[in-house]
């Protein structure tokens, strides 16, 4: 079962994506690219920071299809914040899925669960898996 939540997750699909990190390693044989060290992905009002981010891109056109974040992830939007173990930002499907002990705080309420699926077009989110809602602020 899941809980749908409103929110201001919407991002402009054409907004440039900025990634900053300590380093980026590109494997010359396979083309695999991985950002490591304080990685921050920014697009519009959305900020996703993580320890490591792997880039899945189309070698021919250079278009990024997916950003796979791991090593502890925090998501920040103008009025929400979320924490999880990992995140999968699919730029083509326009979805952002946080997984692993997800805790989402919105104003005074906090929701925790196993998976948070964010629809970046509609700007809505859906928490799934052992969902617990805490009103009146995050659990003490």
């Amino acid at each position: 079962q899941g809980v749908s939540l409103g929110g201001s997750f919407a991002t402009d699909p054409a907004a440039p994506v900025e990634v900053t990190a300590d380093s980026l390693s590109v494997d010359q044989a396979t083309g695999a690219a991985t950002f490591t060290g304080d990685v921050v992905i920014g697009q519009g009002g959305l900020r996703l920071s993580a320890g490591t981010v792997e880039v899945f891109y189309d070698a021919a056109t250079g278009a990024i299809a997916r950003l796979l974040a791991s090593g502890g992830v925090t998501l920040a939007t103008p009025d929400e914040a979320a924490e999880a173990e990992g995140a999968d930002y699919d730029l083509t499907a326009r979805t952002l899925i946080l997984t692993g002990d997800v805790l989402l705080t919105q104003g005074q309420s906090a929701v925790s669960g196993e998976r948070l699926v964010v629809d970046l077009d509609a700007g809505t989110a859906r928490m799934e898996g052992r969902v617990r809602t805490v009103l009146g602020g995050p659990p003490p």
């Binding site: 699909p13 907004a15 440039p16 900025e18 990634v19 990190a21 300590d22 980026l24 390693s25 010359q28």
Partner: peptide
């Protein structure tokens, strides 16, 4: 395999190519 290691602080800017029927 051989690799390119950008280090010492990296900043990448990507402009999504939004297809017309977005």
């Amino acid at each position: 395999a051989a690799r390119l290691l950008f280090d010492g602080g990296v900043r990448l800017l990507y402009h999504p190519q939004v297809t017309a029927e977005g």
